[in-house]
């Protein structure tokens, strides 16, 4: 595709802009920002990837993954609810998920150890892990806030912090992973997954594209479940002190917009 054709596709940006203006939806500014950002960010990524692929050096792959994890941490920390001291817990979770998935993929020789595979797959894994973290943290803080009386009840009756948050933790893990599992049930029926579509358009064999897509789907199942569970078990102890007292002020509810 040439830059000229890409420029013509801006029609798809103009349509929502005009509609937003006519119907006074007030979405113009955000639409424009989103458009400009996606152009700059994606083109930059494209050039960086080209450089990394050409360089064929492991250190660049490593740096790319590190950058992804840093960006994901920053994003997950900023968006939505949080728990005191969450930053390093997010980092540990992302690193663990990345090492686990790449360990299996590379260790069993499922994908080759080249930038071309490692970087996009890592991007999907870390990106998904980030979304799951945000979902989990939002749900967990709201469960803990609304069911504070139940946490207190269990502690009063001589339960440990782990027993006192068990129901809320399990509910949050379930609630945050269900969308991933549910969306996989209907996949392909309505919408072709983005990555697979891209590969097919770029001329890949559809069956090969499907097989690759399946690999990614399975990977994302692990990512989703491991992220929620790990983040959950890393973060709940922060909500209690050594006297087994519940520290409600360590919950930082979403106060954006």
């Amino acid at each position: 595709m040439s830059y000229l054709t890409l420029a013509i596709t801006l029609i798809f940006v103009v349509i929502p802009l005009v509609l937003s203006k006519t119907l006074k939806l007030g979405l113009e500014k955000d639409t424009l920002i989103a458009t400009v950002r996606s152009i700059i960010q994606l083109l930059a990524v494209g050039y960086v990837l080209q450089f990394v692929f050409d360089a064929e050096q492991l250190i660049y792959i490593f740096l790319m993954v590190l950058l992804m994890i840093a960006a994901a941490t920053q994003n997950a920390r900023k968006k939505g609810a949080s728990i005191k001291g969450i930053t390093w817990k997010l980092i540990v979770t992302f690193v663990f998920v990345e090492v686990l998935t790449q360990g299996i993929l590379l260790g069993l020789g499922i994908t080759p150890a080249t930038a071309q595979y490692i970087i996009p797959i890592s991007g999907m894994v870390v990106g998904n892990s980030m979304v799951l973290s945000i979902l989990f943290l939002n749900r967990f803080t709201s469960e803990m806030t609304t069911h504070q009386d139940q946490t207190e009840l269990i502690l009063t009756l001589g339960g440990t912090p782990k027993q006192a948050i068990r129901t809320q933790l399990l509910n949050s893990i379930k609630a945050s992973t269900i969308p991933t599992i549910e969306s996989q049930k209907t996949i392909g029926l309505v919408q072709l997954p983005g990555m697979m579509s891209g590969q097919i358009i770029a001329g890949a064999d559809p069956v090969q594209a499907v097989m690759f897509q399946l690999l990614i789907l399975f990977l994302l199942l692990t990512t989703a479940v491991v992220t929620s569970i790990m983040l959950g078990y890393l973060s709940y102890p922060t909500l209690f002190n050594e006297r087994m007292q519940f520290l409600s002020d360590h919950l930082e509810e979403d106060d954006e917009d």
Partner: peptide
């Protein structure tokens, strides 16, 4: 130990919270 303490100092909470 907090757990021991809470077992021999029992509270029936004002809200009668239930699961």
């Amino acid at each position: 130990d907090p757990v021991t303490l809470r077992r021999f100092v029992g509270i029936a909470l004002q809200q009668a919270t239930m699961l």
